[in-house]
Design a protein around this nucleic acid. Structure first.
Lengths: 250, 250
DNA sequence: CGCGTGGTTGAATCATCTCAAGCATCGTGG
DNA sequence: CCACGATGCTTGAGATGATTCAACCACGCG
C-alpha cells in the first residue's frame, strides 16, 4: 500500500529553519507550549531531528534511556511485551505527542516504539532537558502536565479495557482519533487509519476478526464508511453516544 | 530510631517527630528517597499529615487539585467513572505510594481516592513542592521517576486487561500484592486482602463471581489458602508461572 | 432476632474467540 | 508482463470463557 512520499530533500538551512520549534505547527500542543521566543530557542538548541521509516523502531524494550522523543510528522505505536511473548499495544502517538516517559524511572525503555508510517521525530536528550528545567520554570511545569496527561490517558485505556464491551471500545477508539485529528487541524470525520486492523484489535483487547466485524456492523448501521484504511465517520454524534455508553439506537 | 532534633523542639515534638519523613519507615520508598537530612527536613516542612477513615474519600473526581498525597499508613483505591456511571478501579495504593498525579495536567482530580481501611496520609501542597524543585535537584529527579513509574504501572495494568485471561489476571494481581508487601517488610506469602472481592473484580475487569470461582479453583489446586480476606500463597512460584503465562501444570 | 452486606456456588446464556475458507492488493522474480 | 507468495482483511460456523441470574450461606450489627 502506498503512502504519501516525503517531499524531496530540501537544503540544510531550510530544513533547520522549517524544523525549529517556533516554526513547527505543533508547538502549541507539544513540549514548548507556553514558552516565549528566547526560551523556545534554548529548547531548540538541545533538540535533534531525525527520520524514522515506516516499520522502523525508535527504541526497543531494554534500550538504555537517553532521550524523550516528540513526534513531528507521522504516527507511532508503543507496545509492551508479555513474559510469554505476546505483545500489547499501549498507545498510538500522533504529531506533537511525547514518547519515552515510561523509561525515566528505570533508565531503560519499557516498551517498543515503532513508526506506523514514514515519520520525523524530535530527539530531546533528557539530561540536557533537566538542565533547562532549572532555568525555565514554564518548561518544567508544562513537562509535569504532559506526564500527568499521559497518566490520565492510560487511565482511560484502563477504563476502556476493564469496563466496555467490544462495540463501545471501538467507538471510543474512533472518537478519540477523530478529536485528535481535529486538534491538529484535520477533518474530524474523514481520515486514514495508519494502523492495521490487527494493531487496533491488539490495542482494544479484541481479535482482528472482531474489529473487522465491528467495522462491517457500524457500516451497515450507517455510522461510518470504510474502504481499506480510509474511514469516514458519517454519524459522529451517534458514535460518541456509543462510546459513552449510550444505547445503540438500532 | 529517633534522634534529637537539630533545632528547638516544638511543643508537639513527639507527634511531629514520629510523623516526620526521616522517622518514617517508608522514606526509602517514598518521595524523600535519596534526600540528605537537611533536604528531608525542608520537605517535611511543607507536608501536612492527616487521618482518613475507612470508606472516606481523600478526594473526588472534579475536586480542585492542590496537593499530592503519600500513603503513610493503610491502603487506598483510586477509581475512575465512566460517562454512563460505571466505575473502574485503576489501582490500589499502599504505604509509600503517591496519589493524585493525574490531576496535575488539568488542575482537577480525575479519579476518586478512597481509603480501604483507616489510614494516614501525608499531604504535599503541589505549589510548595514546585518551589522545592528549584533548590533540591535530587527531589525533582526522584519526582520524575515516581511519575514515570506510575506510567509503567498503568501500562502493566493495560497489558493485564488487554492480554490476559481471568486466571492469569488474578494470579498477576496476587503476585503483585505479594511483592509489594515484601518490599515493605511484610510476608510475601501471607497477608490480608484489604479490598472486597467486588473491588478486585472491578480492577481486573471481571465479575465478583469470577473472582470467587478463581479463589476456589486456586485453593483446590493447592496454590493458596483463603479464609475471608486472609490469604496465604502456598505455592508462590506456581502463581508466578501462572501470572507470566506459564502452563497451569494441572 | 432479623436484616444488610459480602461471599460462594450452580445453571444457563452470551459475547467474543478460534478455526477455517476465501478475497484483494502488492511487490518480486522469472 | 505475468505468476506467485505474502500480507491484510472479511466472513461464517462452532467453541468457550466469562457473565448473568438465582439461590443460598456466613457474619456483624442494631
Amino acid at each position: 500500500m502506498n503512502h504519501a512520499p516525503l517531499h524531496a530533500a530540501p537544503l540544510l538551512d531550510i530544513r533547520a529553519l522549517r524544523s525549529s520549534c517556533s516554526s513547527c505547527s505543533m508547538h502549541q500542543l507539544c513540549l514548548p507550549m507556553g514558552l516565549d521566543e528566547s526560551e523556545m530557542q534554548r529548547l531548540d538548541g538541545i533538540i535533534g531531528r531525525r527520520r524514522i521509516a515506516r516499520d522502523e523502531t525508535l527504541y526497543r524494550i531494554g534500550d538504555k534511556f537517553s532521550a524523550l522523543y516528540a513526534v513531528r510528522v507521522g504516527q507511532f505505536k508503543t507496545s509492551q511485551a508479555n513474559p510469554d511473548g505476546a505483545q500489547q499495544i499501549t498507545g498510538f502517538q500522533m504529531s506533537g505527542e511525547l514518547l519515552g516517559m515510561d523509561a525515566i524511572s528505570t533508565d531503560t525503555h519499557q516498551c517498543d516504539a515503532m513508526a506506523l508510517e514514514d515519520s520525523e521525530i524530535c530527539e530531546i536528550p533528557f539530561v540536557r532537558l533537566e538542565e533547562l528545567f532549572g532555568d525555565i520554570p514554564t518548561l518544567l511545569r508544562h513537562f509535569h502536565r504532559i506526564m500527568s496527561k499521559e497518566i490520565t490517558r492510560e487511565q482511560s485505556v484502563i477504563l476502556l479495557l476493564g469496563n466496555m464491551r467490544a462495540e463501545q471500545r471501538f467507538a471510543a477508539f474512533l472518537v478519540n482519533l477523530s478529536s485528535r485529528y481535529a486538534a491538529r487541524g484535520y477533518s474530524s470525520t474523514s481520515f486514514q487509519l495508519r494502523m492495521t486492523r490487527e494493531d487496533i484489535g491488539n490495542y482494544l483487547g479484541l481479535t482482528i476478526e472482531s474489529i473487522s466485524r465491528l467495522l462491517s456492523k457500524l457500516k451497515k448501521d450507517g455510522m461510518l464508511k470504510v474502504s481499506n484504511r480510509e474511514i469516514e465517520l458519517v454519524d459522529l454524534p451517534a458514535l460518541k453516544r456509543l462510546a459513552t455508553g449510550g444505547e445503540t439506537c438500532a
